[in-house]
Nucleic acid binder design. Structure first.
Lengths: 222, 222, 222, 222
DNA sequence: CATGAATGAGAGTTCATTCAT
DNA sequence: GATGAATGAACTCTCATTCAT
């Protein structure tokens, strides 16, 4: 959606603009982010932003589309298709968490896209992002069922929804102040995030999901 | 946090102002909501809003605190403490869903409070809301363990976090456009929300949570 | 079309704003006139202008509607209905010229309304202004015909159009630079407007119109 | 006034640029016309426009000078100098009307040049255009007087001014929305321009001018 | 205490013009 | 000479907050 002018820019400049925009949108939200500030921090003139994009909306859509795409690649890119569902889910949660810690702005952009007042972007942005992960998880579950390593009596769609919902809330809990406080409250931690044992949380969450998926141990194997 | 003048107002007027403000904040988000519009729609003078509250922030905090409080009462108020964890969870999810359908603005306010740019409200609002539900769920789980109806090998805090996370995502899926689209994508529904069978979703989600909590069937019952 | 706020303003302030706006629109045209400048010169805040009017368009429409109305009153207000057509036309041309010299901005606003790019104002402004004068002149001519002091073989509508067209061009020739230069060119005057004998021009123009209207002298009066 | 580079351009390109510029200036007015759009629609680079012309003003002056020149040629070019004043005036009004219908943008440019805010162009543009027609009409009238076919008691300059004023208003009434509405109002037409009988209007106007010019019928010819 | 007019710091967007390639 | 990206001043309109009545 950016103008062709933008795509002709040197890669470095393009990246700089998108990075600055992503950071500002992630930190201050869409409405409070000033196009002039994006321009200034990216070292270009305000007017140039409008050579590159149609409007502030256009900047936002592009920044978010790219951020969501990159988030997916960062997490799903390292998956080996031959891995079974448990190894893949473990990878997704751990890689996702690591990505959230390194690049919190990408997760915050997801949060921002889903906020009140951002509905006009939902059609353009949400469907594509969610489509991929929904399919991926659903298929993993179905294949697991066929392979006999996932309980056959669960609903694949709902279970995929369940797993991804936990994934989202987990990542938000690492980067959004509200979800951080909420997590601390649930874990009865008096201090702040630095006292959090992310690995332990991951172990437990992934464990819970596994125990939800795994068939009951055969009763008659003794 | 509102000024004393606000509390001296007739109840009806107070309610009207808060209701209008809640609706507008929920529909348009904090930044795009105009104090003048709240005043106009509530039938009071713009200046009066500043007799009642310190600032727009102050209005927002009060509106949200009350909305979150009311949401909790609506859902948790009807619980009989003698019910076991399964009945209580069933009640919470079903009552919560019904409440979200009736008063979507309250759920949207929760979404709004947790958004990017609202961090300054998190300390004041988040902790209190989450504290109650975190405690409630954690205790339910612990009591269930003691009563032998909940698996003893799970972590009560994390499981409470898990359950409430699903609860939040479920409610958001009914009221926020982004989460609606996401749900439709996960359930492979081509149309829109009207084709959704909320009851079926609830049955399955609650079922999945139950199966996560319930101890494995005794091995020696044959 | 201004907001009620504007009408509640003290008369003096209202007049000041409209006068300043009229002057600026008349001097610089719609597009180049800056709302902030109108505000500053009228001694009010920029934001206040938007308390008084919906938009710059709204300011313009109101300013012009009022200016056109006042122009009409200034010229047609002094007419005694018992006067015959010749006396009325003489009065209109002379009074109009005097008004144009005193308040050139009003005539310039008429020119501005009729300019390229102002079409969206034409429906709202043009019809009403022209309706009055068209009717007035047409009726004058018809009554003159009945009274036998106007040639019966002319078309009243076209003649009214003819007379008013001359009136407009005459007034513009006194206030618009382009029409001034044009007039000087037609009158073969080397210098500038100060060498113009407005009275002589009026005498001749009115004379020409009279001779166009008057029935031919009776052939048999010898 | 354009730079020499412009004159070195292939004729076709030169014409294309001027035509596009004329159309845009005529449609949107000077201020709202975007140099970039002229360039794009003419198929040249924005920067090239500044190789050809000094400034936007320079483009405008050249476009208008040419348009006014062409208008004159279109109308006056077909005149046979041996025709008497009545035939020439008839030709001018009819040819001018036809030209206005075919190429309304030229008439609109005249309107635009005479608008508020365009004063800085008046010296450069107005004098030359008006000089020609003023001379032409004045001479026609004087020759007509000498030939005894025009009343000797009228002022040639003022009469020329009179005739040309009617000509201008007539043409504007065919192409400018404001003057269209005005004409409809004068002719008491409820609908829009398509219901206008241009030929009838021309017949009447030309007739009125003729009757203004023609000497009274000799009293003693019986 | 209620009112609503006044304020002015922005914020998004446009566009004439320059200039490096 | 041709190109089109870069620039930043200018302009319209918004809105939280103040304050006189």
């Amino acid at each position: 959606m950016p103008k062709s002018t933008f795509n002709n820019l040197p890669l470095e400049k393009r990246e700089r603009i998108l990075r600055v925009a992503a950071e500002l949108f992630a930190q201050t939200g869409y409405t409070k982010t000033d196009v002039a500030l994006i321009a200034r921090e990216a070292g270009v003139a305000k007017g140039s932003m409008y050579n590159y994009f149609e409007s502030k909306d256009d900047i936002y859509v592009h920044v978010c589309a790219r951020a969501l795409e990159q988030s997916r690649t960062a997490v799903y890119g390292g998956i080996d298709k031959s891995w079974d569902i448990y190894r893949q889910i473990d990878h997704i949660f751990r890689k996702g968490s690591a990505f959230a810690m390194e690049s919190p702005e990408f997760v915050l952009l997801y949060l921002n896209v889903s906020s009140v007042g951002m509905e006009r972007f939902a059609e353009a942005l949400t469907r594509e992002v969610e489509h991929y992960t929904a399919n991926h998880l659903r298929n993993l579950i179905r294949k697991g069922m066929e392979a006999g390593i996932v309980r056959p009596d669960i609903n694949a769609s709902m279970t995929a929804f369940f797993i991804n919902s936990m994934y989202i809330v987990l990542l938000l809990s690492f980067v959004s102040r509200h979800f951080q406080i909420r997590l601390l409250e649930y874990l009865e931690i008096e201090g702040d995030m630095e006292e959090l044992d992310r690995e332990a949380i991951l172990d437990q969450l992934v464990g819970m999901i596994e125990s939800m998926l795994k068939p009951a141990a055969p009763l008659n194997d003794n």
